[in-house]
Design a protein around this nucleic acid. Structure first.
Lengths: 225, 225
DNA sequence: ATTTATTTTTGAATTAGGCTAAAAATCCTG
DNA sequence: CAGGATTTTTAGCCTAATTCAAAAATAAAT
């Protein structure tokens, strides 16, 4: 349906999808920072994307943007590419989970629907990528999920890791060293106010570790009742 | 060494590599036709590429271009990507040999050296792609080869297929239907002058077929002495 | 409710790549 | 070797995406 979209446009839509996941509109500055361009560039582009027929963005001057259904469809298509590629690079080419993001970011814009389907089939239509992010289905649906951030847990709660933010390779290496990855089981032992540290016992490890908010904000879990 | 090259530049260099394989310089018009742009665009670009430091092209006004050693290095790097990708898509994702070219043409510009190496390793460092084209080695060497076009054979010569031009999917489907692919054994039964047809017995087939020059010019063989 | 600070938008320029139309070289033919 | 045909180059313009600097809105604070 909607063909002649450039890589750059696809990147804008993906970024806006991400920023508006909470329900809030995305501001010009937020987008500019994420994409490492100036706010002026963003204003230009979002005005353009709001004037396509049909429009990809809902833009209100000085009020930021959100995706239209059209825009969301494009974003989800790219996100499906990205997450399938991450899984494929991990499973088929032996990439570690901290290496897949950057490669997938370039490949996601150039693979055909044919390749998307072949990758999905060869992996058995996976539902999650190596970081636990859900992969949109072929018809672009995403499962609802009620994960909460690890930073919100308090002793003596227990939880299962569902998902880890994938953007920082160093953090990912640190996490896998400690044994935190999707499906890991965690028990919260202590909470320190002010610095917001929590002490956590990780399944299979002999001694607990203390994690600060720079880490716990990036890890999402399901509480075990 | 040489980083900020765009996809477009990489495509120009690849095209020029191809056109100059014979030793001749590539003309502006030839390049324009292959790349489906106007000759004016080509003049612009080749002048630019001849002025980079170090230059990627040897350009002489009205005399066409050839690659400098620098330019050739870039071209071979892309060709290595392309042919490894063709093999990978074929072997790992089950693409047929007529489908791989187009996909590889887009992927070749975006894969990292890391991915190149992982693909090569996962395939066991193949030397040829599915059409029989040699894959440049990691240090960008290509084996010399003395293939000749099938159109040059005369009865009662016999030959082994080494390589098939990969640019036309319809031709490729036609060839595989007939059992012509790298390693196929052929015996030339008849030659018709004027129309340049040859009648060929293909190994494993019950009856011979007549092939015209539109086909035989695209197939390269090694004569069996 | 003004002033100040922050965010967003506007306007003018830039870079990469391409196009058209016209001018200039080279090639070909008689 | 002159004149026409073909090829190549030049010159000017276009679009996509960006930047910077200045202007305009919005938000925050006294």
């Amino acid at each position: 349906m909607r063909e002649n979209l450039t890589r750059v446009i696809e990147d804008y839509l993906k970024t806006i999808y991400d920023l508006t996941a909470s329900g809030e509109r995305a501001s010009t500055n937020q987008i500019a920072e994420r994409m490492d361009v100036t706010p002026a560039s963003v204003t230009n582009m979002i005005q353009k994307l709001a004037e396509t027929q049909p429009p990809l963005l809902d833009y209100r001057k000085h009020r930021g943007v959100k995706l239209t259904p059209e825009g969301e469809k494009v974003a989800l298509e790219i996100i499906r590419h990205h997450r399938l590629l991450e899984m494929f690079l991990h499973q088929t080419l032996g990439y570690s989970w901290d290496e897949v993001h950057e490669e997938a970011d370039r490949l996601e814009h150039v693979i055909s629907e044919e390749m998307e389907e072949r990758i999905a089939a060869s992996l058995g239509n996976p539902q999650y990528d190596p970081h636990g992010d859900p992969i949109p289905t072929r018809d672009l649906h995403l499962p609802e999920s009620d994960e909460i951030s690890l930073s919100q847990l308090r002793p003596p709660q227990e939880a299962r890791v569902k998902r880890v933010r994938d953007s920082d390779p160093d953090l990912l290496r640190y996490l896998s060293e400690m044994g935190i990855e999707p499906a890991s089981h965690l028990a919260i032992l202590e909470y320190s106010p002010f610095d917001n540290n929590i002490k956590v016992q990780i399944e299979g490890k002999s001694s607990p570790v203390v994690l600060g908010p720079r880490v716990t904000n990036q890890v999402f879990v399901e509480v075990i009742s």
